[in-house]
Computed example of a mutant assay.
Amino acid sequence: MKNIILSSIAFVFLFTACNQKNKEVENLNSEIVAPAVETPSIDVNDIKPEIEIKKAASSSFSINGVVNEYLSLKNALVNDDSKAAALAAEKLVVTLSDLNSSSLDSKGKNNFDGIAAEMIKDLKHISGNAGKMDHQREYFALLSKEVTDLVKNFGTDRKLYKDYCPMYDGGKSGYWISETKEIKNPYYGSEMLSCGGIVETLK
């Protein structure tokens, strides 16, 4: 009988302790309140200036100086002036090297850098071979293709004409860019000055 009474007392004690523990946990849980999280509001006007800056940076890139130097080189070959062509090629290398393409997006920058690298290779052949007009004209043909790609990809502020001479290089590479409608052939100069025609207008 004594054992039964002791067991009953122990059971009541354990039940009371567990019940008290549960109440403590409940009270603790009720005291824990998740902090309110404020969701920052995004105003479209906040990001607009960044977009405008990027547009302004891209619009600051211009190949007009490159085109102008190319035309000087072309006109030197039209005039059969090998030394002037060499000097114009040197200036164009400097202009290309100084042109900052960092305002372009990655695709545009890679495109420009690739074309510019090929142009510089060809220009060094022209600048380093004063007195060798045939050699200069051979690399001018390659240069003209690259300048055409440059104009078509990045545009210019002037109207240009893509001309073609079917007599040069068997009709394979006799293209050049001109600032006038009048045909003045840089591949033959005074020998066949007006040989060729306009095949495309570039704007």
Rank of each mutant, 00 (worst) to 15 (best):
V67E: 06
V67G: 07
V67F: 10
E69N: 06
E69V: 03
E69I: 03
S72Y: 11
S72G: 12
L73F: 11
K74Q: 13
N75Y: 06
A76R: 12
A76Q: 15
A76P: 14
V78T: 03
N79K: 11
N79H: 09
D80Q: 05
D80T: 02
D81R: 04
D81M: 02
S82T: 13
K83F: 07
K83H: 10
K83T: 15
A85P: 10
A85I: 02
A86Q: 11
A86H: 10
A88I: 14
A89I: 02
E90V: 11
E90C: 07
L92A: 01
L92F: 05
V93T: 14
V93A: 05
V93R: 08
V93M: 08
V93D: 10
V93G: 07
T95L: 13
T95I: 10
L96P: 07
L96D: 06
D98L: 11
D98Q: 13
L99V: 14
S102G: 13
S102I: 14
S102P: 14
S103P: 15
S103V: 07
L104P: 15
L104K: 12
S106R: 09
K107P: 09
K107L: 06
G108L: 08
N110A: 13
N111F: 13
D113S: 13
D113R: 12
G114A: 11
I115S: 08
E118M: 10
M119V: 05
K121I: 12
D122N: 14
D122W: 07
H125C: 09
H125W: 14
H125M: 15
S127G: 04
G128A: 11
G128Y: 08
N129A: 11
A130S: 13
G131Y: 00
G131H: 00
G131D: 00
K132R: 08
K132N: 12
K132F: 03
D134W: 00
H135Q: 08
Q136P: 05
E138S: 00
A141F: 04
L142V: 01
L142R: 00
L143V: 02
S144V: 01
K145E: 10
K145T: 07
E146G: 01
V147S: 04
T148H: 13
L150S: 05
K152N: 11
F154Q: 00
F154E: 01
F154H: 01
G155K: 03
G155F: 03
K159M: 07
Y161R: 09
K162Y: 05
Y164P: 15
Y164A: 14
C165Y: 03
C165Q: 02
D169M: 04
D169Q: 05
K172V: 06
K172F: 06
K172A: 10
S173L: 03
S173E: 06
G174I: 04
W176R: 06
W176I: 02
S178N: 11
T180A: 08
T180V: 12
T180N: 07
